[in-house]
């Protein structure tokens, strides 16, 4: 199974990147997860020509070829970071590779809430007609206190949270298989 993991921030240091790196390694026997960054994507300004820039085209190809997408988002001001919404705007406006693509949302934050509000927004955004992703329903994964959650080898040391993630990922794999039918 091939999955794309999208780091929802352009920050140099992010526990969301760490979380995806952990998943990449931890679920290596179940899926090949390729991690993609949003940081070098040009700024979306709704150009009159609906032409995707090079970076969007490359990412589109990867998403199209993948069985599913994992988006790990931080929370800034109760919503998702602008660089992530910038990516989603390009995808919606040009190539629309997320149409009917299974998506799993995760999020990590330093505080206690673990990006709950950003994830709610992200779900609504992914529901928009031009994105129309198939977001795994009925589950969410909020990793609060994320700075303390990993050891220096990027292993998720919070065992409850690790187990929850295992179950969540298993659900996602099931979900993908059912969608493929």
């Amino acid at each position: 199974m091939k999955l794309i993991g999208i780091v929802g921030t352009n920050a140099d240091k992010s526990t969301n990147r760490t979380l995806l790196q952990y998943m990449q390694e931890h679920f290596a026997d179940q899926a090949k997860i390729e991690i993609c960054e949003v940081k070098d994507i040009p700024v979306f300004n709704k150009p009159s020509e609906r032409v995707a820039p090079e970076q969007i085209r490359q990412l589109t190809d990867k998403i199209t070829a993948a069985d599913g997408v994992i988006i790990s988002t931080p929370e800034y001001d109760h919503t998702i970071p602008a660089p992530l919404s910038n990516l989603l705007e390009w995808l919606a406006y040009t190539t629309q590779p997320l149409q009917n693509k299974p998506v799993m949302i995760t999020g990590a934050s330093y505080g206690v809430l673990g990006t709950s509000r950003a994830q709610t927004h992200l779900r609504q955004i992914l529901n928009a007609p031009e994105l129309k992703a198939l977001v795994l329903p009925g589950k969410e994964y909020l990793l609060g206190h994320s700075l303390q959650a990993f050891n220096d080898k990027n292993v998720l040391v919070d065992t409850d949270k690790a187990q929850e993630l295992d179950e969540y990922f298993a659900n996602f794999v099931d979900f993908i298989n059912k969608v493929k039918g």
Partner: peptide, 18 residues
């Protein structure tokens, strides 16, 4: 409104403002 939310450019501006 972009995809049920605000434009990323406005989002980005508010992030600078916070």
């Amino acid at each position: 409104e972009h995809n049920r939310s605000i434009p990323s450019s406005l989002n980005s501006f508010l992030e600078w403002s916070s």
